[in-house]
Design a binder for these strands. Structure first.
Length: 736
DNA sequence: CTTGCTCGTGTTTTT
DNA sequence: CACGAGCAAG
């Protein structure tokens, strides 16, 4: 019958053609998860079991949602416009726009991204005279988001100590401020949409009877509130089809609850748990390594990936002297892969944290290798773009104090800190917005008039024209034209006009009503929710750089995982938390399973971090990969626990001897300054950077030293055992 | 009011 | 190192 069913393997076929009922699909990496999801939707529609508008499909990223829509329209001759396929945040936004009155929101409410939220909290603390040392804005933001993700409003939060009571009070004040200004943050989108459905029976019944089939992608990433949201929608008799992989749960830090998978199975009495374990992506060695790594985790639902592809190449491992040298090696390997005919866009360079991209980018840039960085500062997060958006937000909603403050004096128009403070006091007393207060008089009145002028001048214009007018009238263009480093910023402002153009041109973005104000609101939502992955050069053949987190869901022929060091990956902050290490390991699992044919893993002995040199041990993840799968490209130095150094002198035979630098012959010599610094820190014959063995703590690396003679002490980083100060006269340290 | 400087502090991952 | 906050001079 349907051609799109052919080619599915038995479990995939079973999942796609399951009769309408609750189902949990445990889909391993590369097992055809997205294909199953989209084919399921196509099958439901083609067999007449559902109409396009009776399906709700939820993803976590815009990329995944877009992918699903693309594949769906390739399979079925239907118009996917108007189908409810999107991210949790996107769908909730849609829901709240449609029912803004019932949700208690202004029609043109604005969405705060995390940076906007942080700024709003800082502003709140200042207004309430709260000490931001005692209550760091970041912590407050985390606290508020955490409560919202658990579905708790301030009244519902239990506070047992003064500190928490104060934070709850701030939460309450923050809510009031947001409501006053007509803005909502990310978590608020979800909570408010949930409450709307919960409290408003007609609306709830409407959507419950409309969506008979609810499909969820990356179910392991759902938080408590998202799961409740799904349950609420499904409680009218719809069937919930959840696809997930507990081994790829890497968002616990932002509230994701893997336990939702077990809860779902129990609460919905799911008797259809289907496992997709055949991997179509990676060669055998890569898959074996991934399986071996994830086996070290205790809390798993259990699943073992297999492939009928050959074992392929071994995994290449490399030990670099420092981060720069690691980057240099990666560049060489990439050049040679390109020489073999591999496209650059099929190669990815992954790292644990964004800060690591600098060194790598530098090396790539010097080598003239085209590359593209994902994440980092995105288009809609750039300051000049945010300024422009702030003006647009003020047109849509002049009560948006956050937007007001951002641009009231940008470009500079003589409204300084003092005037703003007065304005804020007046606004607070009158309980109105800054814009309303500004209309009173003074220099600020000129700004309020500017906002009015913008609104009048853009009345009836199309969205791109509106943006164009705002850039001119606000003086942003003029400002950046005079600034010497303003060329890139000007280009970005032009790009914003383009973005508005393509936004309008894109199918489904313009509502049937077609009002400009509606367009503007939709565009601003788009800017907040989709911070702008569409960057220039998307189609170019460029090497892909990104964090492991943002690599989830992607695949490449060749993958480099860099910076595999204790403290970095696994990250030191995670090792302290009890469930943290398992999440790091899942992260490693995700990283490894991105590779189709070639996998390269590397670490550096020393690395610059926070402006100082850090000495890290190789990551434990090296040890968790069976040796037979690895091919070390560097001599086996002091690696692993039983390693024996090929060079150097036995400490016991000649105590007090200064050892030869551990720097291998193939590495470039360190700069003179480093040598000098090293010499200064010499103590008891051991050097900073020296690897040592301790009877109890195992292997470590000396990171600091002080004293001399019998008082000599060294500080040793034992990796997972921690960093310790040891007296040389007492501790037995053997160089390795 | 603006600009430019110093100082101190700090980063895991993101919809 | 790099950014933000805080302060002194134009």
């Amino acid at each position: 019958m349907s051609s799109f069913l052919s080619g599915l393997n038995p479990p995939q076929h079973a999942a796609v053609t399951l009769p309408p009922q609750h189902a949990l699909i445990l889909a391993g990496a590369g097992s055809g998860k997205t294909r199953v999801l989209t084919t399921r939707i196509a099958w439901l529609i083609q067999t007449g079991q559902a109409g396009p508008h009776g399906v709700l499909a939820v993803t976590f990223t815009n990329k995944a949602a877009k992918e699903m829509l693309t594949r769906l329209s390739a399979m079925l001759p239907i118009n996917t416009r108007g189908m409810w396929i999107g991210t949790f945040h996107g769908l909730c936004n849609r829901l709240l726009r449609a029912h803004h009155r019932d949700a208690g929101l202004p029609q043109l409410f604005q969405i705060l991204d995390s940076a906007d939220q942080l700024a709003a909290i800082k502003r709140l603390l200042k207004a309430l005279n709260v000490d931001d040392e005692k209550f760091p804005p970041r912590d407050i933001a985390n606290f508020i988001n955490g409560q919202k993700e658990a579905g708790l409003r301030p009244d519902a939060v239990e506070a047992w100590d003064d500190y928490t009571r104060k934070r709850v009070e701030l939460y309450r004040e923050y809510e009031a401020q947001c409501l006053r200004e007509g803005v909502v943050d990310f978590a608020e989108l979800l909570l408010r949409a949930y409450e709307l459905l919960q409290r408003n029976e007609p609306i709830r019944l409407h959507y419950q009877s409309r969506f008979r089939h609810i499909l969820v992608d990356e179910f392991q990433d759902t938080n408590v509130l998202q799961y409740r949201w799904l349950k609420l929608l499904a409680s009218g008799g719809a069937s919930l089809f959840c696809v997930g992989d507990d081994d790829q749960s890497i968002y616990a830090f932002r509230g994701a609850e893997v336990g939702n998978m077990r809860d779902f199975e129990r609460e919905f009495r799911v008797d259809n748990v289907i496992r997709l374990e055949q991997n179509y992506r990676s060669h055998g060695n890569i898959l074996d390594a991934a399986n071996a790594i994830i086996k070290h985790n205790a809390a798993r639902l259990g699943k073992n990936l297999w492939t009928d592809a050959g074992s392929g190449e071994p995994i290449r491992a490399y030990e670099a002297f420092n981060d720069t040298e690691e980057a240099r090696w990666i560049v060489e390997e990439i050049k040679s892969l390109a020489g073999e005919g591999l496209a650059r866009r099929e190669m990815a360079l992954l790292y644990r944290s964004n800060a690591q991209s600098r060194v790598l980018e530098h090396a790539l840039f010097s080598a003239g290798l085209p590359y593209r960085v994902y994440g980092g500062l995105r288009f809609f997060e750039r300051q000049e773009v945010k300024h422009a958006l702030a003006y647009l937000r003020l047109i849509a909603n002049p009560d948006d104090d956050g937007a007001f403050l951002r641009v009231v004096n940008f470009p500079a128009r003589g409204i300084g800190a003092r005037s703003i403070e007065q304005l804020q006091d007046a606004a607070k007393n009158a309980k109105v917005s800054l814009y309303a207060t500004a209309q009173g008089g003074g220099k600020a009145a000129a700004f309020a008039a500017l906002v009015d002028k913008l609104r009048a001048a853009t009345e009836g214009l199309t969205l791109p024209e509106t943006v164009e007018q705002v850039l001119e009238i606000s003086g942003l263009r003029a400002h950046y034209r005079t600034e010497k480093e303003g060329q890139d910023r000007l280009a970005n402002l032009d790009e914003l006009v383009n973005a508005a153009e393509s936004f309008v041109a894109e199918e489904g973005n313009v509502d049937a009503e077609g009002e400009v104000s509606g367009d503007l609101a939709a565009f601003l939502s788009h800017a907040s929710l989709e911070a702008g992955e569409h960057q220039a050069g998307e189609g170019d053949d460029a090497l892909q750089l990104m964090t492991v987190h943002s690599a989830k869901g992607l695949e490449f022929d060749a993958v480099f995982i860099s910076g595999l060091e204790e403290g970095l990956f696994p990250h030191e902050n995670s090792v302290r938390e009890d469930k943290g290490l398992e999440e790091e390991r899942r992260l490693m699992y995700v990283a490894v399973t991105r590779a189709r044919k070639r996998l390269y893993i590397s670490h550096a002995q020393t690395r610059m971090l926070h402006g100082q040199t850090r000495y890290n041990l190789p990551s434990r993840f090296f040890d968790e990969i069976p040796e037979g799968l690895l091919k070390w490209l560097t001599p086996k130095l002091a690696r692993g626990h039983a390693a024996v150094s090929p060079r150097g002198t036995s400490f016991g035979a000649s105590p007090g001897l200064t050892f030869a630098p551990r720097r291998p012959s193939w590495a470039a010599p360190p700069p003179a300054a480093v040598v000098r610094r090293t010499a200064e820190k010499e103590a008891g014959g051991l050097r900073i950077g020296q690897n040592v063995q301790h009877a109890k703590f195992g292997q470590g690396v000396i990171v600091n030293a002080e004293g001399a003679g019998s008082d000599a002490r060294v500080q040793v980083n034992f990796g997972r055992e921690g960093v310790k100060w040891l007296a040389l006269s007492v501790a037995k340290l053997t160089p390795v």
